[in-house]
Write a protein that binds this DNA or RNA. Structure first.
Length: 267
DNA sequence: ATGGTAGCTGGGCTA
């Protein structure tokens, strides 16, 4: 069997609702992680999504942030706190366990990592602290030795090749060395950027600013990522960045990133 | 150097 997963920062689920539902009907991933839903749980459009065969797991917040996981399979052990000993005032995290029909389990983390601008600032410090907590959680999850996937808006430009002109981004929180180092620290635990294995040397930006004609000039950045534990990574067979959605009417400034995996029948 | 756009909201903040 096969499992398809995706991540999309929709920048307001209510503002995006029509193109979002259309996209979901066409693409229909088994699991979809959303960021920046920008609404409280009660304002999330559950009904239309459930009619398409999804369960909705929502960590909403008024006005800002907010994440959700949509899944065709029922998920268990839902957690909304990245650090269970220190509650985050901002809704940026969901962890869930996917129990597949073949009785194998997968840990899913949906993240909206803090932007951190401007640099330097308390916001940047919050970003680094948040990354430390993510690293700590990833260590625990990796030690469980089952497939583990982190999907979301990382607000990290990993390399000079992931931005149209890195010289303009040297003091931006998305490209600061302190943030990139923590991203590498996370990867060095044994997590692999799906893009690195599957991109065929495409650039695959995932975000183009609304300002300054960034889309028309292709002034993009690659900040939405799918990180895979070793066992998940071995089974990936498809990866794509759906940049066409950036051309839609009233688009998000981010586009979806999708991956598909083979799932062994017997484990 | 400034302001450029969008979402949520009903200011100004966030990105």
């Amino acid at each position: 069997m096969s499992l398809s997963i995706a991540t999309w920062n929709v920048n307001g689920i209510r503002a995006r609702k029509d193109i979002f539902i259309d996209w979901l009907k066409v693409n229909s991933p088994d699991i979809l992680c959303l960021q920046e839903i920008k609404c409280v749980n009660d304002d999330f459009p559950n009904q239309e999504i459930e009619e398409l065969g999804y369960n909705c797991y929502i960590n909403g917040q008024k006005s800002f942030n907010g994440v959700a996981i949509l899944s065709k399979y029922e998920l268990t052990k839902i957690t909304f706190n990245l650090d269970e000993n220190d509650e985050d005032e901002q809704a940026r995290f969901i962890e869930a366990i996917l129990e597949l029909p073949n009785n194998s389990n997968i840990i899913i983390n949906c993240i909206y990592l803090p932007n951190g601008n401007p640099y330097p600032s308390e916001k940047f410090n919050y970003k680094l602290r948040w990354m430390d907590k993510l690293i700590a959680r990833a260590k625990v999850n990796i030690s469980k030795e089952i497939p583990y996937i982190i999907l979301g808006d990382f607000n990290i430009i990993p390399t000079e090749n992931d931005v149209y002109d890195y010289t303009r981004w040297t003091d931006d929180a998305l490209f600061r060395i302190e943030a990139k180092k923590k991203f590498r620290e996370l990867c060095n635990l044994g997590l692999y950027d799906a893009h690195a294995f599957m991109n065929n040397n495409n650039v695959d930006y995932t975000h183009w600013d609304y300002q300054g004609g960034a889309w028309e000039k292709n002034h993009g950045i690659r900040i939405d990522h799918i990180l895979l534990s070793a066992s998940a990574c071995s089974n990936i067979y498809k990866f794509n960045t759906d940049s066409e959605t950036r051309s839609l009417e009233k688009p998000s400034d981010h586009v979806p990133v999708l991956a598909s995996f083979h799932i062994n029948q017997a484990q």
